[in-house]
Design a protein around this nucleic acid. Structure first.
Lengths: 225, 225
DNA sequence: ATTATGGTTATTGGATCCAAAGTAAAGGCT
DNA sequence: AGCCTTTACTTTGGATCCAATAACCATAAT
């Protein structure tokens, strides 16, 4: 669990989600160890972690292989994030929005408003959106007294395409992405409104719908052109 | 990931959830290794797995400690299971209940009906209930094409008190437990009904409510005496 | 007296070694 | 010629060894 161990986990995680290994490919301990320039021990430790994260799965009786993700898997992972973040949002609405959380959320909402206000997107806006989006979601998730929900979401986010900030896929077509982000920002504002008013059910449903933005919205946004 | 490794994980998991170690207690690798009669290697591997499962957490810069669970954690874990199983139930209802799943669910429903029909509980009924309950929930969870939801639930179930079959707490007061199981059985039947009729939203909400049976129902059942 | 610094000790992390299990290949037998 | 068996090799799993580092303690200085 020291520097190296953690770095092996994250380096492998990156390699896998970048597609450096083919889905279903068997990962040999020695091969990976040599590739990363470490001994087998940290690799073996990392394999266990990545297995739990769902990126690897056991290959028969021996060793691990890269897990393959179907379209259904991606879809389910997004929905799982939706119901979990929805749960968090409902809790927050029901328990009442504490003043400091209110203030923080408001801050990031304003940032998003400014980003969208100018009516178009430039390349550098994407990182800014990622940041504010992560903060907005993070605040809601961590506002619950228990870390259990946040943990479940974090584990789910290890699956490729499941994380909240994987909305941006196509940085070539900035015009369509702008429409998507405009909608996402409006979702954020609606969620914020429902949180402030203590509307638990509405906050939950909005959050669940918000999760689908990368999944179900592209086709509609394409048509509306 | 061989016999021994897996057994170390499950033995440790059992020890932890049984409370063999105090919450917050630091677990030394050598101590645990000696206790289980293995070398440090499988213990180190197991620690990584158990960390991901949420039973252990890092203790400062070095090693691991037993994670402490607050009442809020338990509550959240149950709710997480509720929304995830609710998601699974809704999916199943929306996609339509396949004949074989219908048949299987019906079988376990009948088993439950018989168990409850005699009007009281005996000690041996508890195991039977555990079995049919596990099957009922398992079938619904695994009916989705993707394993992502099932995985998320499985991970959540590693947390103590979160699993669906941890309903039975008090095997002394079999009379109260009977009332609880009677309700649980009725929940199962309602869920089954809604699944068959394709009532997605109803199936989801019933499943979410069903998850709370171990949490919120005891006080009411006590009053009703 | 309290704090800081240095040293010692205990424990973890990484590498290597050995054994066990599995797989593949080759040869023999039917 | 095909299949089964046996053997050899590959790869993982477990144990041990060595190094690095964090924690603890003691002593000294302010």
């Amino acid at each position: 669990m020291s520097n190296n161990d953690k770095s092996v986990v994250s380096r492998l995680r990156k390699l896998i989600s970048e597609g450096a290994y083919a889905p279903g490919e068997r990962l040999g301990e020695v091969a990976v160890a040599e590739q990363l320039g470490v001994s087998r021990t940290p690799v073996r430790l990392a394999f266990r972690t990545l297995e739990q994260e769902g990126l690897l799965q056991q290959a028969g009786k021996r060793g691990f292989m890269v897990r393959e993700f179907t379209q259904a898997d991606v879809h389910c992972a997004v929905e799982v994030r939706g119901v979990l973040e929805g749960l968090a949002a409902r809790h927050l609405a029901e328990q009442g929005l504490p003043p400091d959380v209110d203030k923080e959320l408001s801050f990031w909402i304003q940032k998003g408003k400014k980003l969208i206000a100018k009516g178009y997107l430039v390349e550098s806006d994407i990182n800014q959106w990622s940041e504010l989006n992560a903060h907005f979601h993070g605040i809601i998730i961590h506002s619950i007294g228990s870390g259990v929900v946040a943990d479940a979401i974090a584990r789910n986010n290890h699956l490729p395409f499941a994380a909240a900030d994987s909305i941006i896929i196509d940085s070539d077509d900035l015009e369509r992405e702008f429409k998507k982000l405009q909608l996402a920002q409006f979702h954020h504002e609606l969620i914020f409104q429902s949180l402030k008013r203590g509307e638990g059910a509405r906050a939950e449903m909005l959050m669940r719908e918000h999760a689908l933005i990368g999944l179900r919205y592209p086709e509609l946004l394409a048509d509306s052109e």
